[in-house]
């Protein structure tokens, strides 16, 4: 039983990390209807920028803060550039064209980040505690082994989700974002500037990517494969629903725990490595019952 809980918890925590990436997708899809495949590349770009700036600025008085500020500035510039160069010329195009355009952005960012900062594997250490601790020792014999960095990541992800929720529900900009998400034309007609909103949304997605990049980067090292975690976040996304922040979180938890449990308990029977596709099959199974994901909006077609 203790082992089961251990696997479950490690799965849940991996799931939190997936939902961090999925969150960025959801934010952009909600506000602009763009299926942003470049989120993974943004994670890589943000993490690379941050880790290299840390290295350059390591002799200054506050390297982490400075690097953070500059990285955030770069993500804002990136958001503006994407809005100007990609979204504006492609306005009113079908979703698939926009999706392909974000694939182009992903290619560009992958290349640009590595041209600018090099393509080695960089270790990122911003003081997240390493090592493991035992918890629940009173409940299970021998306790449950949990990595400290996962705990920290979970706390950060939780804070991020709460912050985003408050931002969306309580602030003026958040309300404008929700209005745009509901209906572009209606939002525009009451005087919400769409282009400005898109810049904000892509900035927020960039910041989420930065957080995800720092956490993933300190776990795995900052390297090209960070860009591929977008593929890990996709099943989370369709499981939770494209339009729901809550869906991204819950979807992440389901996918993360399901994946780990399947690998441990099912994997040995079929030759292992099923983590690779299990998440997708799980999400596909869910979709057969709820085609719009768990918390996605139901679209009613009119003829």
């Amino acid at each position: 039983m203790g082992f089961f809980v251990e696997v479950l918890i490690s799965g849940l925590m991996a799931g939190v990390l997936y939902s961090l990436v999925a969150l960025g997708f959801v934010l952009i899809f909600k506000a602009s209807g763009v299926f942003n495949f470049a989120q993974g590349a943004m994670v890589l770009f943000a993490a690379l920028t941050f880790v290299r700036l840390l290295d350059i600025l390591k002799d200054t008085f506050a390297p982490i803060t400075l690097a953070l500020i500059i990285t955030i500035a770069m993500m804002i510039m990136l958001a503006i550039a994407i809005e100007r160069l990609v979204l504006r010329p492609l306005v009113n195009q079908p979703g698939i064209s926009l999706f392909m355009a974000t694939l182009g952005v992903a290619y560009f960012l992958d290349g640009f980040g590595q041209t600018l900062w090099g393509s080695d594997i960089y270790t990122l250490d911003i003081g997240i505690p390493k090592g493991s601790i035992f918890i629940f020792e009173s409940i299970f014999e021998g306790g449950v082994l949990v990595a400290k960095e996962d705990l920290v990541a979970t706390v950060i992800a939780g804070v991020l989700v709460v912050t985003l929720a408050i931002f969306f529900q309580k602030t003026r900009i958040g309300r404008a974002l929700r209005a745009v998400a509901d209906d572009h034309q209606a939002a525009q007609s009451i005087g919400i500037p769409l282009n400005y909103i898109w810049v904000i949304v892509w900035t927020v997605a960039g910041l989420v990517a930065l957080v995800a990049g720092v956490i993933w980067g300190s776990k795995l090292g900052v390297q090209f494969s960070l860009s591929l975690i977008a593929l890990k976040a996709l099943p989370v996304l369709i499981l939770g629903g494209f339009e729901s922040v809550l869906g991204a979180v819950i979807g992440g938890l389901i996918i993360g725990s399901g994946e780990k449990l399947a690998e441990i308990y099912l994997g040995p029977y079929v030759g292992g490595g099923i983590e690779y596709w299990f998440a997708y099959m799980l999400a596909l199974g869910f979709l057969m019952f709820r085609p719009q994901g768990l918390f996605g909006e139901v679209h009613i077609d009119r003829v």
Partner: peptide
């Protein structure tokens, strides 16, 4: 890396 960049940029340009 440059190939990646140019490829991506060309895709966006074409679209």
């Amino acid at each position: 890396h440059l190939e990646f960049m140019i490829f991506g940029a060309l895709i966006i340009f074409f679209l």
